[in-house]
């Protein structure tokens, strides 16, 4: 067999392997979605969304869990976005490239890989006990912020690094200060990528269960949270709780809650994609 034939076969084999791999992911996702929709779609109605949890599956709703998820989403975004983006800017633009900075950089990247339950234990010790926040929305949001800060910081740094150096030089050469250069040139040029990083991070945060179990989020909360200091539940907690019940009705409820959570994530991502599109349209590349 000559070489060019061998190369051709390798080429084809790899192509089909790549197609199969892609299909595998899509098929599994499709089966999962079909199963969830099949089980849960019939249960979703207005009363499912507006009812408090109950010990009867058909009377149970997700009102507290859904409002908890919205609260957590908003609070976590408010805490983590400014801190994460500012830290990313500092590390990329202000921090001197010393050995300490190197160690810091490696550690931040590693933190993104720490199991989330570890953050739960940290949050329990610092926010719940030491700061006395209890099992509140605020404690949960701080804990989840810790969890996603490394992702936001790394995304911010990489987006800033992708802005051509020549733009920075041009701005400095016109007498702009560092802050002016960052604010009016670097951030607008990198905003699209930074926003993408933030979406991924926040999507992860609202899907988390483990750290919230550790800090004491409840599965059964018979009231709607009205302040950041209230106790709370979130959709993943509710789903986890329902799935571990023996009654068939709760399993169906869990499937319905999964659909609601998916829709929530899709809507949030959609909004973020829209903002990204708008900032990129304003940039005249």
């Amino acid at each position: 067999m000559n070489n060019s034939l061998k190369n051709k076969i390798t080429d084809q084999v790899f192509k089909y392997f790549a197609i199969l791999s892609t299909m595998f992911g899509l098929v599994v996702l499709a089966i999962f979605l079909a199963d969830i929709l099949n089980q849960g779609l019939s249960r979703i109605d207005w009363s499912f969304i507006t009812s408090l949890p109950s010990r009867f599956p058909e009377k149970s709703g997700i009102l507290t869990a859904l409002t908890g998820t919205v609260w957590i989403f908003v609070l976590t975004a408010l805490i983590s976005i400014p801190i994460g983006v500012a830290a990313g800017i500092y590390l990329e633009e202000y921090g001197k490239k010393t050995r300490l900075a190197n160690i810091l950089e490696i550690n931040i990247a590693n933190l993104a890989g720490v199991p989330s339950i570890i953050y739960g234990i940290l949050g329990l010790e610092i926010f719940v006990r030491t700061m006395g926040l209890g099992g509140s929305l605020l404690a949960g949001s701080f804990t989840l912020s810790l969890l996603i800060l490394p992702i936001i910081i790394v995304a911010t740094r990489e987006s800033i690094r992708a802005v051509p150096k020549t733009i920075k030089e041009a701005s400095f050469a016109l007498g702009a200060t560092k802050w002016q250069t960052i604010w009016s040139q670097i951030l607008p040029a990198s905003a699209g990528n930074i926003i993408t990083g933030i979406i991924l991070a926040l999507s992860r945060a609202i899907g988390e269960t483990a750290p919230l179990i550790v800090i004491g989020a409840l599965a059964y909360v018979p009231f709607v949270a009205t302040s950041p200091m209230d106790e709370f539940s979130v959709l993943p907690m509710q789903i986890f709780n329902w799935i571990s019940r023996p009654q068939k009705g709760f399993i169906i409820n869990a499937a319905s809650a999964i659909i609601v959570l998916l829709v929530f994530v899709f809507i949030m991502n959609g909004i973020a994609v829209y903002f990204r599109y708008r900032t990129q349209k304003k940039m005249k590349w």
Partner: peptide, 16 residues
């Protein structure tokens, strides 16, 4: 830098 302007090797207009 306001008194001493600069033009660079490659044209580097801002993406605006």
């Amino acid at each position: 830098r306001k008194a001493v302007g600069m033009v660079f090797q490659k044209p580097n207009p801002f993406p605006k």
